[in-house]
Design a protein around this nucleic acid. Sequence first.
DNA 1: CTGTTAGCGCTTTCAC
DNA 2: GTGAAAGCGCTAACAG
Lengths: 366, 366
Amino acid sequence: MTASTLSEVAKLAGVSPATASRVLNGSARTPAPEIAERVRQAADTLGYIANAQAQGLAKARSGLIGLIVHDIADPYFSAIARGVQAAAREQHKMVLLATTEGTPTDERAAVAAFAARRADSIVIAGSRSTQPGDKGGNAELAAELDRYCRNGGKVGVVGHGIIGASQTDGYHVVSVPNEELAAELAAKLAAGNHGDFVIISGPEGRLTSDDRIRGFQRGLTDAGRQQAEVIRSGFDREGGYEAGLQLATRIKAGQTAGAGRSAGAPGARLCIFAANDVMAIGAVAALRSQGLRIPRDALIAGFDDIETLRDFRPALTTVSLPLEEIGRLATLGSSNEREAGEELSTHSAVTGAVVLRRSTETSPSA
Amino acid sequence: MTASTLSEVAKLAGVSPATASRVLNGSARTPAPEIAERVRQAADTLGYIANAQAQGLAKARSGLIGLIVHDIADPYFSAIARGVQAAAREQHKMVLLATTEGTPTDERAAVAAFAARRADSIVIAGSRSTQPGDKGGNAELAAELDRYCRNGGKVGVVGHGIIGASQTDGYHVVSVPNEELAAELAAKLAAGNHGDFVIISGPEGRLTSDDRIRGFQRGLTDAGRQQAEVIRSGFDREGGYEAGLQLATRIKAGQTAGAGRSAGAPGARLCIFAANDVMAIGAVAALRSQGLRIPRDALIAGFDDIETLRDFRPALTTVSLPLEEIGRLATLGSSNEREAGEELSTHSAVTGAVVLRRSTETSPSA
DNA sequence: CTGTTAGCGCTTTCAC
DNA sequence: GTGAAAGCGCTAACAG
């Protein structure tokens, strides 16, 4: 038993498939009301559901939006995904999901798959990487995306433009002021505490991570402070944990070796900047496992302001980003549902805000 | 400029479209190696990408798996989504995402949309509801799903079977022993503490929530304890927060009115069972906002063991569920990629485990 | 092993 | 306003 087709509906209603099509799916010409009703009735009794594949083939559009993330279970990406989903819904489109773990090769494959499905647009979240090993992959990704755009596709990118994209046409990038915000965070942190800073971040080449590092360092410099040491590990909870373990031994050594453990003396604590919230949480867990406490023994700040983590204690100082909005903008910006004449914008920007919380408080208590 | 087609490739290679199709996309018959190479070459220089819509139309299969969740940003669902995604990937399929906020009407629409796209299978996560207002919606959802199955679709359901499904054919349900696990949790909690129990849960009719309540109450009864009062609110963080606020005033009243505030006396504390982890987190936040501390002033347990929440302090007693695996099973179970003869299984089961952590510890400290 | 011939289900000029 | 016909890009018999 197979689903009923348009012609079956047409036959039942005693009209031509063309007419049936016109009433069931939007068209410039609207058939006579009386005919229309008859068709609708027929469609209803047959339980007709249009075959989107056939429609897509005929119209050369699919109503699909492809979304590429590293990991859908990562709260950063799932928040963006929610925004994309919401925007897609408004446009009566559906979202196709691909996860890539951040490897350019997989991203290229995802783009190709979306192109094969004739996705109307592609949203690519998650920073691209410039690690040496990814060079070839990045080039291929860029080539694939360029080709997709040349064939009429639109792509929305969050964070950075595509490395090596040979054109700007078809791209819409939602830029996130990672660097500026990180600088601002550094400034505020420097104002409130006298200890050293250390940065724990993702691997070198991870653009988002690198931007945040750069901004933070700049903020430090502007505040007349020394550059922070950078510890590289994974850009996720595990990476934060590992880095946290390293720091724990160091902190403990410093506490016993230094000017005596002055638990009450404010200002002497190490301040850790984790390049994102999940890393920060991992680091806190590691420190805690070594008997260290925040903010008593060290201060820590993250980035992103992940919603699920807001109830975490000590409350995490971080930079709040409108993740859902970012997803929306990337989707809307890469939509071809524009008014005629209205040019497809090539950029949109969001802004974030530094939020100081307990995890970087230097006063004894709240 | 439009993407190149199979016949263009064929022409360039000097063969028929049929042959080109055979080499480019799998087929039983394999053309001569020499010809094959020529075709591949042509495809390559043209940058040919098969049109999946056309393939789908011709083959009557789309290579798409539809996934329905309440909210992709909810960690419970995103964990399941990751499993679905992983399974889809293994089968070289893509996942189509739909979010519904749990309303049967939206779910019905999502199923119809998936059917229109000729999704090979649909995975529906998130408990259905039996609330009176949803009755009509549920019936329509069931009808839509039944129709989808009749047309050859497979559906994987996590948790419960579809309410009102008129057939079992095509459905695969991954059952989660919510009731049993909740009972087990209650038993363990009852063994370790003498205070009263209270349950905070989602609205009546939310199947998953109701199962957990029922199980918990049974566990209490089996342990010779009184039934717990049930406070209904949203099945999310906000719901937990609201319920927590209510409880806070009650707890504080009890502390001053009762046998004096015996902060150190174990066993007298109220034990809260939140029907899921996010609710529990919300409740903890509410209690904290009222100056109450866990486990000093009250004990609390959740359900799900959400990964992102594992670093939360006090560590949350909960029931660990293999969310990702659940997503996998629902996907695989509803896959039609089975060996011939191998029957499509109609059920699969997962198991969880009670994990006791700090949030329900009655001893003064760890 | 390869090419020819029909569609898959729908949209869309183009006549009527 | 409505129908007829062609075609979107590909696959699947069926012949050769």
